[in-house]
Design a binder for these strands. Sequence first.
DNA 1: ATAATTATTTAAGCATACTTAAATTTTAAT
DNA 2: ATTAAAATTTAAGTATGCTTAAATAATTAT
Lengths: 219, 219
Amino acid sequence: MSVAIENFVKAIYSNNLQDHNNTKPGNIAKKLGISNAAATDMAKKLAAKNLLHYEKYQALQLTDKGTKLALNVVRKHRLWESLLFKMFDMSLHEIHREAEFLEHETSDFLADKISEYLGHPKFDPHGDPIPNANGEITTEDTSISLAQAVEGKAYVISRLISDDEEFFDFCQHNGLKFGNTVFIKKQFSKTKMTQVTVFNNTLLLNEDFTNIIYVNEIE
Amino acid sequence: MSVAIENFVKAIYSNNLQDHNNTKPGNIAKKLGISNAAATDMAKKLAAKNLLHYEKYQALQLTDKGTKLALNVVRKHRLWESLLFKMFDMSLHEIHREAEFLEHETSDFLADKISEYLGHPKFDPHGDPIPNANGEITTEDTSISLAQAVEGKAYVISRLISDDEEFFDFCQHNGLKFGNTVFIKKQFSKTKMTQVTVFNNTLLLNEDFTNIIYVNEIE
DNA sequence: ATAATTATTTAAGCATACTTAAATTTTAAT
DNA sequence: ATTAAAATTTAAGTATGCTTAAATAATTAT
């Protein structure tokens, strides 16, 4: 499968996780930086390859084959991130940027070597689960977004779901890091802002942030 | 530059090393597994991009820009081979196979990280020199091919210039390995065969082999 | 030197993955 | 319910990197 196809199914896969399986060509076009027309075009082609179900004006649904392909690419992406993060002094944004290309040129053989070397990690440096060699995500995810977190409680950051350099920079500079503890000070229902503390740092986060920072409750 | 272009200039570069700067479209076509027509076509396109000098029916000559691009890709290829060889239990053929793809999707930034991690190695696991970040090969190569070696003398294997799995398997099974000592027993001028010993192993090698096994004289 | 072989080039065509512009359908607003 | 806005689709066109077939030039053999 080509790079374009791999990126297309990957985009559908990740978009459907957030967007309640209501991903349409326009969403993918925006994600991939291509025109809506190109996305529609590709959707038809992939339907012919049995990678997704396509019906005019309807949401794009990956077939089992399509999901497997997406998870195979996601696996390679996250394994590369894990390897680069462990070996080199690279930021979350940098490992993502490199993995975005390497993921398409990695044989299953090499992916397994990387996984083995790392001791078959279950999560990447962002906290995202790494699918196994069969394309299955076995670890159940009990984390919630900061937006769903409850005032007055403390949580451990488990995932930072983003590709954005500025976001990672912000997190880096404010202690919003995988494993760190955040305390939810106050939630403002009207503005949808959330005030949190990380160590001695107090932050006011808007929806854009609270939706992509995932946390686990502290027992 | 695209993968096709990178492979094209790389093929010219490596072919010109062996073929005395007499590389024509047909040679490249054969190397890359494309038609002669496609090679001629590409040569014209790359001339327009100032990557090579093209004149009808003449040999293809890389420009400085073309050579720099080729060496940049070669650098990445050999750094990947070095990294994969060091970290994983992979054969010379396997590291080559993977590097062939990874080389095109590696930023200069990542290449430098790999180089740094490895302590800026001068040679890859095949014994081939690794160009530096400026695309220069600083180490002078004093090695000669086994075909040029002298009867009765002992040499140390310094390079195995090949992409071929079977060749590597043969070498593996017969002690023809980077760093090992070979003794030139007898050369047959008519058949161009060479009889050598490696440890207690006696081998009769034809031209195909003696031309791609490089050695250094023992002082 | 000439003929035969081989290599190169030209020409026409194809698949992939995009583009823009226009038409159509859906969704949202009033 | 009707209109306005937004999204989707269709249609036509483009660049890249190939293909095969035919024409042309260069090389090799006799």
